[in-house]
């Protein structure tokens, strides 16, 4: 059922990230949004170091950044194309690490949902610091689309950023 409310994609993406406890702990923020593309920013933290001798962040953090950026791109792409709120679980993810991330600098995760079918979303992503042409990592992922009903009222309202009566009534009709 289409959602008729006027929603800005950056707001939707920000609220989506805000709902994920682990992403809050990492300090992820939405940096840039355009059609089918989402860019997230990960600030540097010594808590995330994987190589104590050099201060380089752990590969797992890059994977999490990329997975989140991809998932967020899928949510936004589905919303743009179908005016529907779905959360899609990751089916598979492959990350190539090209170079270590430089310590004390933020890392950007840029994901593009380049194909959306009725069941599957295909996404590619990059992680980089200063120059998108010199990426830290490159990734491809697929996500499974699940029905909008699976999202749950509470989460849907959190994504819509509406708890007012009008939105509740609309949500009530949907489920």
């Amino acid at each position: 059922m289409p959602i008729t409310a006027q929603i800005d994609l950056p707001d939707l993406a920000t609220r989506f990230i805000g709902q994920l406890a682990h992403c809050q702990r990492l300090g992820l923020t939405v940096h840039h949004i355009e059609t089918n593309k989402v860019e997230l920013k990960l600030p540097y933290s010594t808590d995330l170091v994987g190589y104590p001798d050099t201060g380089v962040v752990h590969g797992g953090v890059i994977t999490t950044l990329i997975d989140t950026a991809c998932g967020c791109a899928v949510v936004c792409a589905i919303f743009e194309q179908f005016q529907s709120l779905e959360i899609s679980p990751t089916l598979d993810l492959r990350v190539d690490y090209m170079r270590p991330a430089e310590p004390h600098k933020p890392i950007y995760g840029l994901a593009e949902c380049y194909k959306l079918t009725s069941n599957i979303a295909f996404v590619r992503a990059l992680a980089y610091q200063d120059d998108v042409e010199q990426p830290i990592a490159h990734a491809v992922a697929t996500f499974m689309r699940i029905s909008a009903e699976m999202v749950g009222d509470e989460f849907r309202q959190a994504l819509l950023g509406q708890v007012d009566t009008q939105a509740s009534a609309k949500d009530g009709q949907q489920s």
Binding site: Q19, L20, A21, H22, C23, H58, G59, G60, V61, T63, T64, L65, I66, D67, T68, G71, I87, P89, T90, L93, V95, M150, V151, G152, E154, F155
Partner: peptide, 15 residues
């Protein structure tokens, strides 16, 4: 990473 289920963030599992 998924407050609905709830489930662990896929990136954490990967890490």
């Amino acid at each position: 990473g998924n407050p609905v289920l709830p489930a662990i963030h896929g990136g954490v599992i990967a890490g």
